[in-house]
Amino acid sequence: MDDIVIEDLTKSYASGWPGRPPFVALDGLYLTVGRGEIFGFLGPNGAGKTTTLKILLGLVRATGGRALLLGQPAGDVETRRRIGFLPESPYFYDYLTAEEFLGFYGQLAGLGHVAIAQRVTDLLSLVGLADARDRQLRKFSKGMLQRIGLAQALIHDPELVILDEPMTGLDPVGRKQVRDLILSLRDRGKTIFFSTHILHDVEMICDRVGIVIKGRLLASGRVDELVRQDHTQSVEIVCQHIKAEGNAFIHSLATRVLQQGQQCLIVLPSPDAVDAMVGEIRRQGGGLLSVTPHKASLEDLFFQEAAPEASRVQADSLTGRAF
């Protein structure tokens, strides 16, 4: 069963000026997130990630399409009892202490005093803020705010956790804590849907990812599937006693040739050309030192998908056609 179902979701904002076309934030987005899954929602700035999350939570109304959360239409008030949310760069009531802050959200979620007291203690320990229990949030650092924000999202033990850029503002230790926390939530059967820019974290913990560009989903699936299916691996060959300069055959196959003294680095765009290249090196009397297949990363895929679209958007905005 899918906890999040998004079908043909659109959102456009009026330009405010007559005659100007509306700004399209989401342009027919399709997406599903299964129960117990960690789903990473990737995309450059302005791609529509936060708008999608806001529609799911009822903060913004969709112009068209359909979004279901836990089987109910997005924005349904009662369903929010089962959802936890952390917004991007969260701002909270800074006059509250950490304990009061979590208590307030616990009350809003309908928890009783005893349950709140227990959950507050547990969560403050979990996010490493037990010592800051009685400290006002205005005295918190950015990383501490991010962590207390995570705690408020989890105060009512939700089934589905939606996080908007949860790694923002955290140092490497904090990021690892959040990663571990997300993994532990998945182990307890929770579904986690989070947007991020930090590809490394996505690659490490996500079961599936979706790449959204300009309001459309460009790719979606398991990280290993996406990387294997959609991106050709490159191969690096290091050899010696060969002069690659002026060798038309080598240059016709390689995407990059780097000569350093006796050694030469040749980068091939795919493994298909390895045999031909190795044969040529031997023919020229060279010695093979290494052949390294370059494993494609999610970052490669992201740039492959995002870069052409992003540069087109940038060109459009410069010529005044977009937005």
């Binding site: 939570l57 969260p90 809003l108």
Partner: peptide
């Protein structure tokens, strides 16, 4: 201040 986001994400 965007504090509304976390409030409106609650069952209220």
């Amino acid at each position: 201040r965007r504090t509304i986001y976390t409030i409106m994400a609650r069952p209220i």
